[in-house]
């Protein structure tokens, strides 16, 4: 290609990608834009990105006070942290056993993991809902957490990683006097940090954003995670008072967007690995 052709090709590439990029980003831009505007400007037919009269403080203040938005966020943090912690505590030893310990029934057990990997969670919602009622934990944090404490995907991912660690490392650790459980915590997990990070991102993103299960088992705002919280807020608002609602939506998506921008590569690798299950 000649040089002018190259410049032209480059220009076309940027033109197209900037267009598609701005279309993809439009909802985010619009969300932030509306969150800054007073009600009067929402109805004006001439649309502008920035408000004529800044109303950001009012909108965000209403979002944070009228709906228990901070509470939703806190719930999100509690639920996501509890799920992630339990998942790692339960999945890592299991993955180690499947990868490095020779015991009868290992294949059968791995079969169960694969079956678990195959079943979408929505299919199980009904029996899990009944179980949740039976356990008397309806409308509690426990209800939000318990179906997810074991993650077949986590077991699968960790097992793949652990299998790539040489057996000699495990043997050396056994000779050094480590128990099987301390091999998991002191050797296997620290050596598998990329897998831990990828799994953590998948786990937190999916449970922060999950609507289906919280919708079933949580009724009071006290326990609602962010996604369900913002939907409840939207239903309560009912009118066209978009300012506070958009402020609320911005607050809900902000933590993940900021983390994403800070650790883009990890998010993309983690989430694509997660979708590959």
């Amino acid at each position: 290609m000649t040089l002018p052709m190259k410049i032209l090709a480059g220009a076309v590439r940027h033109a197209i990608l900037l267009t598609t990029g701005s279309l993809v980003l439009a909802p985010f831009v619009w969300m932030v834009s509306l969150s800054l505007k007073p009600p009067a400007e929402l109805f004006s037919s001439s649309f502008t990105l920035l408000p004529q009269h800044w109303f950001a403080v009012e909108n965000y203040a209403r979002a944070l006070t009228e709906a228990p938005l901070p509470r939703y966020m806190l719930n999100g943090v509690i639920v996501c942290a509890a799920i992630l912690l339990l998942q790692i505590m339960i999945c890592a030893p299991a993955a180690y056993a499947l990868a490095k310990v020779r015991f009868a029934g290992r294949q059968v057990m791995f079969g169960f993991v694969l079956i678990g990997l195959l079943i979408p969670h929505q299919v199980l919602a009904l029996p899990l809902f009944i179980l949740c009622y039976g356990l008397g934990i309806f409308n509690t944090y426990a209800a939000l957490i318990f179906p997810f404490v074991v993650s077949p995907f986590g077991i699968f991912l960790f097992r793949q990683f652990f299998m790539s660690i040489p057996d000699d490392i495990v043997h050396a650790a056994r000779l050094d006097g480590l128990s099987e459980l301390s091999i998991v915590w002191r050797i296997m997990l620290p050596m598998s940090l990329p897998a831990v990070l990828a799994f953590s991102i998948v786990s937190v993103v999916s449970h922060w954003n999950d609507l289906f299960w919280p919708l079933l088992v949580v009724r009071s705002q006290e326990f609602m995670p962010p996604s369900l919280g913002i939907v409840t807020f939207a239903n309560a608002e009912a009118g066209n008072d978009y300012g506070p609602l958009m402020a609320g939506a911005t607050v809900v998506v902000a933590p993940l967007v900021i983390s994403f921008l800070a650790a883009q590569r990890w998010f993309i690798e983690g989430l694509t690995a997660g979708s590959i299950k």
């Binding site: 909802p27 954003n209 913002i230 939506a249 993940l256 994403f260 998010f267 989430l271």
Partner: peptide, 20 residues
């Protein structure tokens, strides 16, 4: 990053934005 962003944000929250 720009094109990937929607995949990791809460679809519930963004659905409300789409409604607007």
């Amino acid at each position: 990053a720009v094109h990937f962003l929607p995949f990791m944000t809460s679809l519930a929250a963004m659905a409300i934005v789409w409604e607007a």
